[in-house]
Amino acid sequence: MLTSSAAVPSPSASARRPLIHPLIVRITHWINAGAIIIMIMSGLEIHNAYPTLPFKVPRAITLGGWLGGATQWHFAAMWALMMSGLIYVTYGFISGRFKCKLWPISPREVVADVAAALSGRLSHEDLSVYNSVQRLLYSGVILAGIVAVLTGLAIWKPVQFQALTMFFGDFDRARIIHFLAMCAIFLFLVLHVAMALAVPKSLRAMIRGR
């Protein structure tokens, strides 16, 4: 009687699901996300001091209030992004996570998956396997992040790191590339957040791991 099946707690639904994102990935993902949002918002306020775009970005989506405050936010959050980003990328390469999840990227499959996504036929049933569009976008944003950090260093220290600055052309070109890398990350963010909201269990997996 005591061993009736009803009395034995069944493993919860979440424990039965396989672990998709290890803790280190989840922690660094969210630190990266927070730091990137601060970097973009304060960066847009810095942009407004000498606009690259033909207009100033509305104050509502900038951080720091003016150039002085914005540079303080930018030069504080850059440490979080650099540290967390370095851990994330190093872990991704060393553990084989990048190779396993993001590779290979076949252009033919990307085209097929884009077509499938647009017609609403792209499945997100198995969160542990990324489709070709995901692979392309996740690889792309990691690359854009690396370019943003490197061009950031190139325009922060164009004398001490002048070899890096010259690699990107000169100060002015490195600054434009820094801006373009931000644009790429921004576009990714819009799509990524929209997809996470459209497939809520993917958001749950990045919080709880499963």
């Binding site: 405050g69 303080q72 936010w73 030069f75 504080a76 004398v159 001490q160 002048q162 010259m166």
Partner: peptide, 25 residues
């Protein structure tokens, strides 16, 4: 205050990064 202490920290980092023999192009 947090931002100002980060800025002070950045002063110290930059003093360390500064190479007295490195010339601006």
């Amino acid at each position: 205050r947090m931002l100002q202490s980060m800025s002070d920290f950045n002063d110290r980092v930059q003093a360390l990064l500064f190479d007295p023999n490195k010339l601006a192009p």
